[in-house]
């Protein structure tokens, strides 16, 4: 057998290609197909439904509320993650006067990211429940008269979840932006100094422009991760009160595993995938423009 170099290459990558196809493409195709069927678990039957699942989803007012909640969560979470990550990365940068604290603080800052969502949620439930730490402190300081149910208001529950997510996730963004900052050649700052650039100008024209591709990549990833976020909502509010923290992931999960309607859940899942893909394409184009 005398195989060409190219053919041998294909043979070597074939097993991993097959594994990747089986683990990614097959589930997507399966879900895409299931979205066209009524699959109500108690009956055990799978009946062709055409576009009925998509029509039901799009005519459900709750779906739009859930979409809005998800948008609010994604926008503010991503902005906060990147802003806090950038601020702290610059703060810890070796060129900064606080650099001496850098290694110690990095260890401290990374702790929330090391926790699992269940642990992080438990900690914040203990802090925020009506008999929790926050109320005790505020009442002790005389800043509150009565206990407040911080997760009990439809107006503020999402705010708390965004803040908790920011607390949990910022170290990841901080570390990656910090790593990007360390790769900027010192000469660029020296040139900027010679050109008379002040601190703000150096940050914007040297630091920020150099790390922009990293920030954009992190942005894409964070948008996709935030759209998929499930744990924090399930573990703290369960989507309440009054569906104010019900997001797409929770909605799909509830349709599948509580209502037991896997066909409908699949159609909702496909819509999430389309939304994520559209945002990703938009972001990648933005990224290409920033790079080019």
């Amino acid at each position: 057998m005398n195989l060409g170099r190219e053919a041998k290459g294909y043979i070597w990558v074939a097993p991993m290609t097959i594994v990747l196809l089986l683990t990614t493409l097959v589930p997507v195709v399966y879900i895409l197909g299931l979205g066209f069927f009524e699959n109500y678990l108690p009956t055990g039957r799978v009946i062709w439904a055409g576009l009925a699942n998509y029509r039901e989803t799009l005519s459900d007012p709750l779906f739009y509320k859930v979409l809005g909640n998800t948008a609010v969560y994604v926008i503010f979470s991503v902005l906060l993650h990147l802003a806090i990550g950038l601020f702290l990365a610059v703060f810890l940068d070796k060129r900064n006067r606080f650099a001496v604290l850098s290694s110690g603080l990095r260890v401290v800052f990374i702790i929330p990211w090391l926790l699992s969502w269940s642990v992080a949620s438990s900690i914040w439930l203990l802090i925020l429940n009506p008999s929790g730490v926050l109320n005790s402190i505020l009442i002790g300081l005389g800043l509150l008269e009565d206990k407040v149910a911080w997760f009990g208001s439809p107006d503020f529950a999402m705010v708390w979840i965004i803040l908790i997510t920011a607390w949990k996730a910022f170290p990841f963004y901080m570390m990656l932006i910090y790593a990007a900052l360390t790769t900027i050649p010192e000469e660029l700052y020296e040139s900027a100094s010679i050109d008379g650039a002040n601190l703000v100008q150096k940050f914007y024209y040297v630091s920020f422009q150099s790390i922009l591709p990293t920030m954009l990549t992190l942005g894409v990833l964070d948008i996709i991760w935030s759209i998929r976020q499930y744990d924090i909502f399930a573990l703290t509010t369960g989507g309440g009160p009054l569906d104010s923290t019900r997001t797409l992931s929770l909605h799909v999960y509830s349709t599948a595993f509580e209502n037991l309607r896997f066909g409908l859940a699949s159609s909702q899942g496909i819509m999430i995938m389309l939304i994520s893909s559209l945002i990703s394409v938009f972001y990648i184009r933005l990224y290409s423009r920033a790079e080019g």
Binding site: L128, V148, A149
Partner: peptide, 19 residues
């Protein structure tokens, strides 16, 4: 009844009695 019942789960309810 203690405040915030819509945010209190069974475990927290038991903790309130124990505490």
């Amino acid at each position: 009844a203690g405040p915030g019942s819509i945010t209190v789960d069974a475990r927290a309810m038991r903790e309130s009695l124990a505490g």
